[in-house]
Design a protein around this nucleic acid. Structure first.
Lengths: 340, 340
DNA sequence: ACCATCTTCCAAAACGTTTTGGAAGATGAG
DNA sequence: CTCATCTTCCAAAACGTTTTGGAAGATGGT
């Protein structure tokens, strides 16, 4: 069937050892012998079996990425860009990328992490969308398994991570709206338990407070990170009396949903109601109105996270294991003009 | 370090064989012995090493998906939804999914396919975005390697595929515009060499011809499947005199870019210029105006493709290996009213 | 002619699992 | 008591590779 070292050995009339060492470039093989072996290998079309190499080397040269997906069918531009980032970086270092989709805290997710930790499934893991009391991180940490996280947790554990400074981001956005004269600002939050939502919500409170502005509880509505849920949440906010003059989406997808709902009831986003988002997804700049948002360099974050993990796996401690990136506020038409 | 069969065998005082067979549930193990083995396994926290199992079984239980990406940094909602589809289906059958990103026809891509074919990298491959004279398909076909394709090629080769009927889709969309009274219709095509672009272009020509409508060469502009390129191409179309009254994007991303450019120069998409796209990406319904487009059930296509591949790998010939899905036209505000 | 040193090769072990082909002892039928 | 049949176990081989620890023969210096 497929060609093995044994086949070459038989054809050339040497031992498997010699074939292996000849092809690996050791210098204890006579030039002529090596020549004949190389020719035979080329002729037979030999390529070493990956699984056998992995067993022998006790490493898989594979990285794992377990995507936490809400609901079976889902689509989030964040993930394709992030995968492109880690995928390219991994490929550059000759690592494979194993991708698995599982609902957060589901049995399937737990099994996947167990396989990594106990069964030599992959050499390291990339963890995203941190949760409060994140069981994944506890597990990996106590098994001393190599991993890097995009996000932080509320544990006291020390582990390498890359994160965006959600607090700073939200502060920029809220202050921007306040400076434009807004006083009643609605917020569409992400599902509970997600750390980044927690930081953003906290910062929303803080920034409003620092400006001496009270917050009505009904200004804060929960969404599910999708356009549809953003539209629904916006519907609730727009039904308030008085209604908010600005709406912040916990991510761009929800902000896009909000804009849609605003137009639907006959108002103009960016004129009657200001809107802002988080992420700067590719479509954000092409909406009408274009969406004011906080730019996160997702692709770069993916690359950096992956590079850090590879260093970790190979025992090269990264110089810094805690990276906090400040998102930059991209002001576009959806935040409108001053209403003062 | 990690626990192996040997460790359990030593602790219980039996052979490795017996441990293996006890845990695998064979009935040639005494009840008491099995009990002690199971307890020891639980106590030591044993889980079988995946790589060793794979070597022994000569199968990886892993599927490969090599994403053809244009440019290093990229983001296409098509891929995240497609990955979710194949990922979930794969997980349901206990298969892993290996994802690799490579530029089309690049060296890296070729190497990846070689690894699959010759080195036991994965048990099967999913191929997408077929190209003219697609080298990937020729390679896989001549090596009798299990694979399923999303898309068709111009080869005479027989292989299993799932595809959307681009010709039917384009016909629906063009006819829709013609019925609304449009006579000058611009088309933003995908990069050359991509089969789906070829079908769409051909069908564009055919449908216009069938309606007795001539096509000016300058109505057809090439894009790169991104919002930005769609905006640029639309810019060219809008500069024509007389300019087209309708613009079709080769995919939704380019249609979204076109809408953006239309608004930018002070015209109203869906009123002054009709716009249509392909794919029905999640954002399409939330644009303003919402985008008329051809809905492709990407998630389902991913699942079906993957299911077919798994059948193939396990020697269960799927009943049908050629599936052609007709996209449905979703009419939204961007196609506007009749202009007659 | 003898010993030391190179050069070239390979058998065996190892990675951790599953499968094959018995073997030893217990049980039961006659 | 004898032979056949179960029950329970295991040594060895296998998957395909890499590494270890020599061994045999060639070379060269004296």
């Amino acid at each position: 069937m497929t060609v093995t070292l044994k086949d070459i050995a038989r054809q050339v009339g040497v031992s498997v050892t010699t074939v292996s060492r000849a092809l690996a470039g050791y210098n204890d093989v006579a030039a002529g012998t090596r020549q004949r072996i190389q020719e035979a290998a080329a002729e037979l079309g030999y390529s070493p079996n990956i699984t056998a190499q992995r067993l022998q080397k006790r490493r898989t040269d594979t990285l794992g990425f377990i995507m936490p997906t809400f609901g079976p069918r889902f689509s989030d531009p964040f993930f394709s860009e992030f995968i492109a980032g880690i995928g390219n970086e991994a490929a550059a270092h000759d690592y494979d990328l194993l991708v698995s989709t599982h609902a957060p805290d589901s049995q399937g997710e737990q099994k996947a992490y167990q396989r990594a930790v106990k069964r030599g499934w992959v050499d390291g893991l990339i963890v995203v969308r941190t949760r409060e009391n994140d069981a994944r991180i506890k597990l990996l940490h106590e098994h001393h398994f190599p991993f890097v996280v995009f996000g932080r947790t509320n544990d006291a554990l020390d582990y390498p991570y890359v994160d965006e400074d959600s607090e700073a981001g939200m502060r920029l956005l809220v202050q921007h709206f306040i400076d434009l004269g807004h006083r009643r600002i609605g917020l569409i939050t992400s599902p509970p338990g997600l750390m980044f939502g927690r930081y953003r919500l906290q910062s929303f409170h803080d920034t409003m407070g620092d400006n001496g502005l009270p917050i009505q509880p009904e200004w804060i509505v929960e969404g599910a990170l999708t356009q549809r849920s953003g539209a629904e949440a916006a519907g609730q906010l727009l039904a308030l009396d008085p209604r908010p003059t600005a709406i912040i989406g916990g991510n761009d997808l929800m902000a896009i949903g909000a804009i849609n709902r605003i137009q639907q009831i006959g108002l103009k986003a960016g004129q009657d109601i200001a809107v802002g988002g988080f992420d700067d997804v590719p479509s954000a700049a092409y909406m009408s109105p274009p969406l004011t948002t906080l730019h996160q360099p997702i692709y770069k974050i993916g690359r950096d996270t992956c590079a850090m993990l590879i260093d970790l796996i190979n025992g090269r401690l990264p110089t810094t294991t805690h990276i906090l990136l400040t998102p930059s506020l991209i002001i576009r038409a959806s935040s409108g003009q001053s209403i003062l």
